[in-house]
Amino acid sequence: MSEQINLLEKLRLGDEGALRQAYLEHRSAFLRWATAITNAQEQDLLDFYQETLIIFYQNLSMGKIQHLDRGVAPYLFGIGKKLLLNRWLRVTREISLDPTDVLFLQQIDIPSNDTIDEEWKITFKKAMALLNENCRRILEWFYYHDCSIEVICERMGYSSEEVTRVTKMRCLKKLREIISSVHIAGA
């Protein structure tokens, strides 16, 4: 049990080695379950498992999962059920849900299918690639990983939070400029 808690802590801290370990630990049971309720091919099942684990890992590392009273496996299977309910894969057997399941599933957050323009995504990725490494990290940590200025300051080794805040603002400004220029160049 302490090993499980240890693994969870590592996952929560964004340790990708722990993600690899979790992948191997739950793979067999998850694939057995998914095989029983879908008629998907092996590769589709693996994609399904990987997608489920990534959502679990992202939710955990972004602080969306505070308590894992039931352990890792029920939460993983819960994400799997929710993805199946959203028609991620075609199911051949009805997914059984009791009231506690329904409540449990409501707490699980899975990314919605966004409607972002693919062209914008490409432009953004190009712009991010043109930023320097420090800027990329700061923006990712602040906006995506939800890190505070204090944490970023510590990680980057800046002299103060104010320096960090100003650096972040300059990086964002630079990003906007590159997006505009890439967009204009591409137009």
Binding site: E16, L19, R20, Y23, Q50, E51, L53, I54, Y57, Q58, P111, D114, I116, D117, W120, K121, F124, K125, M128, L139, E140, Y143, Y144
Partner: peptide
Amino acid sequence: NMFATLRDQERDRLKKML
């Protein structure tokens, strides 16, 4: 848009790793 694109990028990287 930025958030969703960063999420996609992260997801693609993790998928490749798995």
